[in-house]
Amino acid sequence: MKKVIVLILLAVVAYYLVDVFSQIKFGENRFQGENVRDFYLDKSKNDLHVSNSVTSIVVNFRGFDTLGEVTVLFLAATALGSVLYRRKAHGEAVLFNASTIVRSGAHLLFAPILLLGAYVFIHGHLSPGGGFQGGTIIATGFLLMLLAYHDYKVSHGVLTWVESLAGLTFASLGLTGLILGKTFLENFLPIGTINDLFSGGIIPIIYIAVGFKVGAELTGVLYTMLNEKEYKKS
């Protein structure tokens, strides 16, 4: 009986949500006059010299949100580490080595994957991609290695350093703007020529920091969780 009531309630909620969202014409030109879209496109090109306007929105116009999202990831990794913390690891391993084919393949692919990840976040302001995407690609490289070799170790110390330094870079770039008499996260470096690698002021630097941070954090999360699996409670 309870389940039926729940189902009916969910159906009612779903009906109204579908009804409302199906009426929104996504992808069409819905706004007239002065609006956020025109403002962002215009300023990305002319004021910031960033050709990928998604990046300029994520890192500059809404950079404060991105700083928040980076913090969410950081805290999620922290909370996970706190919940899964064991003073002494004991128990038996449940992971085993993968086959030779997987191991050699992983070994071969590891470096190119890291390179691709770095490429994606370094060119975040020029082409599709950016810090979050590049960082995730790097973490998949480490995941591959963790799956292929059951005794693959990632140094927690190094991850902490990368994480913290990348986060500090983001926060200090923001604070530098404030110290120089501008606003928090406002650009204070020369913006260069559009479409050059060195253009867009602080935007590419922030995105590179985000790339390092996301890569290190996701790797840390994967490592913590795989390690947790490795031990049975005694």
Binding site: F74, L168, S172, L178
Partner: peptide, 19 residues
């Protein structure tokens, strides 16, 4: 100071504390 410091400084500190 300005209100943004109420957010920015603890964020900065959060990344610094592990070090």
């Amino acid at each position: 100071g300005s209100p943004v410091q109420l957010i920015a400084i603890p964020l900065f500190a959060a990344f610094l504390i592990p070090l």
